[in-house]
Protein backbone atom coordinates (compact mmCIF):
# COMPACT_ATOMS: atom_id res chain seq x y z
CA UNK A 1 0.00 0.00 0.00
CA UNK A 2 1.56 3.32 -0.97
CA UNK A 3 2.29 5.71 1.86
CA UNK A 4 1.20 8.73 -0.18
CA UNK A 5 -1.90 10.03 1.49
CA UNK A 6 -3.91 13.18 1.78
CA UNK A 7 -2.84 14.82 5.05
CA UNK A 8 -6.14 16.67 5.22
CA UNK A 9 -7.98 13.37 5.06
CA UNK A 10 -5.99 11.89 7.91
CA UNK A 11 -6.52 15.00 10.00
CA UNK A 12 -10.23 14.93 9.29
CA UNK A 13 -10.45 11.28 10.25
CA UNK A 14 -8.46 11.98 13.39
CA UNK A 15 -10.72 14.86 14.44
CA UNK A 16 -13.88 12.87 13.81
CA UNK A 17 -12.55 9.87 15.72
CA UNK A 18 -11.42 12.06 18.61
CA UNK A 19 -14.86 13.59 18.88
CA UNK A 20 -16.46 10.14 18.69
CA UNK A 21 -14.15 9.13 21.54
CA UNK A 22 -14.40 12.17 23.77
CA UNK A 23 -18.04 13.27 23.59
CA UNK A 24 -19.50 9.89 24.67
CA UNK A 25 -16.73 9.70 27.29
CA UNK A 26 -18.13 12.89 28.82
CA UNK A 27 -21.58 11.31 28.75
CA UNK A 28 -20.13 8.24 30.52
CA UNK A 29 -18.97 10.25 33.50
CA UNK A 30 -21.79 12.80 33.70
CA UNK A 31 -25.00 11.03 32.72
CA UNK A 32 -27.45 10.51 35.55
CA UNK A 33 -28.74 7.34 33.95
CA UNK A 34 -26.24 4.57 34.57
CA UNK A 35 -27.39 2.38 31.67
CA UNK A 36 -26.97 5.28 29.28
CA UNK A 37 -23.50 5.96 30.56
CA UNK A 38 -22.59 2.28 30.18
CA UNK A 39 -23.92 2.25 26.63
CA UNK A 40 -21.94 5.40 25.87
CA UNK A 41 -18.82 3.35 26.47
CA UNK A 42 -19.43 1.67 23.10
CA UNK A 43 -18.82 4.71 20.87
CA UNK A 44 -15.86 5.65 23.05
CA UNK A 45 -14.25 2.25 22.56
CA UNK A 46 -15.06 2.26 18.86
CA UNK A 47 -13.48 5.70 18.52
CA UNK A 48 -10.34 4.48 20.26
CA UNK A 49 -10.37 1.53 17.86
CA UNK A 50 -10.43 3.98 14.98
CA UNK A 51 -7.43 5.80 16.46
CA UNK A 52 -5.55 2.48 16.64
CA UNK A 53 -6.30 1.86 12.98
CA UNK A 54 -5.00 5.34 12.14
CA UNK A 55 -1.85 4.34 14.04
CA UNK A 56 -1.51 1.15 11.95
CA UNK A 57 -2.16 -1.13 14.92
CA UNK A 58 -4.84 -3.32 13.36
CA UNK A 59 -4.38 -6.24 15.69
CA UNK A 60 -4.78 -4.10 18.79
CA UNK A 61 -7.86 -2.56 17.15
CA UNK A 62 -9.46 -5.96 16.61
CA UNK A 63 -8.73 -7.05 20.15
CA UNK A 64 -10.06 -3.73 21.43
CA UNK A 65 -13.47 -4.30 19.81
CA UNK A 66 -13.55 -7.94 20.83
CA UNK A 67 -12.63 -7.41 24.48
CA UNK A 68 -13.78 -3.91 25.34
CA UNK A 69 -16.84 -3.33 23.18
CA UNK A 70 -17.93 -6.94 23.01
CA UNK A 71 -17.13 -8.30 26.44
CA UNK A 72 -16.36 -5.71 29.12
CA UNK A 73 -19.25 -3.40 28.25
CA UNK A 74 -21.67 -6.30 28.18
CA UNK A 75 -20.35 -7.49 31.54
CA UNK A 76 -20.82 -4.00 32.98
CA UNK A 77 -24.36 -3.76 31.58
CA UNK A 78 -25.11 -7.18 32.97
CA UNK A 79 -24.00 -6.27 36.48
CA UNK A 80 -25.93 -2.99 36.31
CA UNK A 81 -29.09 -4.88 35.48
CA UNK A 82 -28.52 -7.52 38.13
CA UNK A 83 -27.98 -4.93 40.83
CA UNK A 84 -30.46 -2.33 41.90
CA UNK A 85 -29.25 0.62 39.95
CA UNK A 86 -30.80 -0.47 36.67
CA UNK A 87 -31.69 3.01 35.74
CA UNK A 88 -32.35 5.25 38.63
CA UNK A 89 -33.09 8.70 37.45
CA UNK A 90 -34.02 9.36 41.04
CA UNK A 91 -30.90 7.78 42.54
CA UNK A 92 -28.17 10.33 43.02
CA UNK A 93 -25.23 9.15 40.93
CA UNK A 94 -22.63 11.68 41.95
CA UNK A 95 -21.07 12.19 45.34
CA UNK A 96 -20.21 15.42 47.07
CA UNK A 97 -16.71 15.57 45.61
CA UNK A 98 -17.73 17.04 42.26
CA UNK A 99 -15.87 20.36 42.54
CA UNK A 100 -12.85 18.64 44.01
CA UNK A 101 -12.88 15.88 41.41
CA UNK A 102 -13.29 18.35 38.57
CA UNK A 103 -10.42 20.39 39.91
CA UNK A 104 -8.19 17.33 40.26
CA UNK A 105 -9.02 16.15 36.75
CA UNK A 106 -8.43 19.55 35.20
CA UNK A 107 -5.17 20.05 37.06
CA UNK A 108 -3.85 16.64 36.15
CA UNK A 109 -4.84 17.16 32.53
CA UNK A 110 -3.15 20.54 32.52
CA UNK A 111 0.00 19.06 34.04
CA UNK A 112 0.18 16.21 31.52
CA UNK A 113 -0.42 18.63 28.64
CA UNK A 114 2.37 20.81 29.94
CA UNK A 115 4.70 17.82 29.94
CA UNK A 116 3.53 16.76 26.48
CA UNK A 117 4.18 20.17 24.95
CA UNK A 118 7.46 20.81 26.75
CA UNK A 119 9.11 17.50 25.87
CA UNK A 120 11.12 17.37 22.63
CA UNK A 121 9.87 14.06 21.24
CA UNK A 122 12.28 12.19 19.01
CA UNK A 123 10.05 11.29 16.12
CA UNK A 124 11.25 8.46 13.93
CA UNK A 125 9.88 9.17 10.47
CA UNK A 126 10.24 5.70 8.98
CA UNK A 127 7.00 4.04 8.01
CA UNK A 128 5.45 1.13 9.82
CA UNK A 129 5.60 -2.39 8.36
CA UNK A 130 2.17 -3.19 6.96
CA UNK A 131 1.47 -6.65 8.28
CA UNK A 132 2.18 -6.61 11.98
CA UNK A 133 0.04 -9.39 13.45
CA UNK A 134 2.80 -11.95 13.12
CA UNK A 135 5.41 -9.52 14.44
CA UNK A 136 3.28 -8.93 17.54
CA UNK A 137 3.01 -12.69 17.97
CA UNK A 138 6.74 -13.15 17.53
CA UNK A 139 7.45 -10.41 20.05
CA UNK A 140 5.18 -12.09 22.57
CA UNK A 141 6.98 -15.41 22.23
CA UNK A 142 10.52 -14.01 22.19
CA UNK A 143 11.26 -10.64 23.78
CA UNK A 144 8.19 -10.45 25.99
CA UNK A 145 7.95 -14.12 26.90
CA UNK A 146 7.92 -13.50 30.66
CA UNK A 147 5.22 -10.85 30.43
CA UNK A 148 3.14 -13.15 28.28
CA UNK A 149 3.40 -16.01 30.75
CA UNK A 150 2.72 -13.83 33.77
CA UNK A 151 -0.32 -12.33 32.03
CA UNK A 152 -1.71 -15.77 31.38
CA UNK A 153 -1.17 -16.61 35.05
CA UNK A 154 -2.97 -13.41 36.07
CA UNK A 155 -5.83 -14.35 33.77
CA UNK A 156 -6.13 -17.75 35.39
CA UNK A 157 -5.96 -16.34 38.91
CA UNK A 158 -8.56 -13.67 38.19
CA UNK A 159 -10.80 -16.27 36.60
CA UNK A 160 -10.70 -18.42 39.71
CA UNK A 161 -10.97 -15.37 41.95
CA UNK A 162 -14.00 -13.99 40.14
CA UNK A 163 -15.78 -17.33 40.34
CA UNK A 164 -15.05 -17.73 44.03
CA UNK A 165 -16.09 -14.19 44.88
CA UNK A 166 -19.28 -14.22 42.84
CA UNK A 167 -20.36 -17.71 43.86
CA UNK A 168 -23.35 -17.85 46.13
CA UNK A 169 -22.47 -19.28 49.50
CA UNK A 170 -24.20 -22.61 49.93
Amino acid sequence: MPEARCPGGELGAFIILSLVTLIPAVVVVTSGNIVRSALSLIPTFLGVTGLYILLHAEFVAGIQILIYAGAITVLILFVIMLTQGGSGVRIRQINEQVPLGAMAAVWLGFLILLVVFRTPWQIDATSVPQYNVSSVGTAFLTDYMLIFEVTSLVLLVSLIGAIIIARREE
Binding site: V35, L39, I42, E58, F59, A61, G62, I63, I65, L66, A69, G70, A71, T73, V74, L77, F78, M81, G86, Q130, Y131, V133
Partner: peptide, 25 residues
Protein backbone atom coordinates in the same frame (compact mmCIF):
# COMPACT_ATOMS: atom_id res chain seq x y z
CA UNK B 1 -9.30 -8.21 2.52
CA UNK B 2 -8.33 -7.08 6.00
CA UNK B 3 -5.21 -8.65 7.44
CA UNK B 4 -7.08 -9.27 10.68
CA UNK B 5 -10.02 -10.77 8.78
CA UNK B 6 -11.31 -13.50 11.07
CA UNK B 7 -10.54 -11.46 14.17
CA UNK B 8 -12.60 -8.63 12.71
CA UNK B 9 -15.38 -11.12 12.05
CA UNK B 10 -15.40 -12.32 15.66
CA UNK B 11 -15.30 -8.73 16.91
CA UNK B 12 -18.28 -7.68 14.80
CA UNK B 13 -20.20 -10.76 15.87
CA UNK B 14 -19.61 -9.80 19.49
CA UNK B 15 -20.95 -6.27 18.95
CA UNK B 16 -24.47 -7.60 18.36
CA UNK B 17 -24.82 -8.46 22.03
CA UNK B 18 -24.80 -4.82 23.04
CA UNK B 19 -27.66 -3.98 20.71
CA UNK B 20 -29.69 -6.90 21.98
CA UNK B 21 -29.12 -6.03 25.62
CA UNK B 22 -29.90 -2.37 24.97
CA UNK B 23 -33.07 -3.24 23.10
CA UNK B 24 -34.19 -5.60 25.84
CA UNK B 25 -33.61 -3.06 28.56
Amino acid sequence: DLNIGVLYFAAMASLTVVGILAGGW
